[in-house]
């Protein structure tokens, strides 16, 4: 019994030290991690809404979005969209003008199969934007759908559909709720 207590104590002490070390590391890296995420979102916002000069973060129920303004004028919305693909969540940000016409889509994070689903976010050599996402430009976000507006990627129909369906679903929900 005595031995058991001793073992427990030693293990407990090691766990305690480990937790302390990790807590310190976490506190040190946290600002940096948050900063990285903010930068990522900011650069995505600039890409999909090049004419806007300021973005205000807002939330509407569960939807996170940014109001894109040029000077004081509201030029559109950038909405965070999450789709469920093959390997897990696909997090995107979709830029739309006030009537819901898509200005641009950026994928922030995805876990699709490399070589198949990952093509949703792959850029052809010499081009600036992923060729799959480029198709969304100028389409109405609320009704966008595979086949009609968007050509699915060969071998990755499900990932393509996940992206498209998530955009149309979130956009519909968003425009139903947002104040005009």
């Amino acid at each position: 019994m005595n031995q058991l207590v001793k073992f427990g104590l030693i293990l407990g002490v090691i766990c305690l030290i480990a937790t302390l070390v990790l807590a310190v590391t976490y506190e040190i890296t946290k600002p940096k991690i948050d900063e990285q995420m903010r930068l990522e979102v900011q650069s995505a916002l600039k890409r999909i809404m090049p004419d806007a000069d300021s973005f205000d973060a807002k939330t509407l129920d569960d939807i996170e979005y940014f109001e894109a303004r040029k000077g004081a004028e509201l030029v559109g919305y950038c909405v965070k969209v999450t789709g469920f693909g093959y390997g897990g969540y696909i997090r995107m940000i979709v830029g739309m003008d006030r009537s819901g016409i898509i200005k641009g889509v950026r994928v922030l994070e995805h876990q699709e199969t490399p070589g198949l689903g990952s093509k949703i976010n792959e850029t052809r050599p010499g081009e600036a934007e992923p060729y799959f996402l480029k198709q969304f430009k100028g389409k109405q976000a609320r009704t966008v759908s595979v086949k009609k507006d968007i050509d699915a990627i060969t071998g990755a129909t499900i990932s393509s559909r996940a992206v498209t369906d998530a955009i149309s679903k979130t956009a519909t929900e968003f425009f139903n709720k947002v104040k005009r």
């Binding site: 766990c15 480990a18 937790t19 990790l22 590391t25 976490y26």
Partner: peptide, 10 residues
């Protein structure tokens, strides 16, 4: 959340 790995494995 950062203790995920260590607590799960234990």
């Amino acid at each position: 959340e950062y203790l995920r790995t260590i607590s799960f494995i234990l």
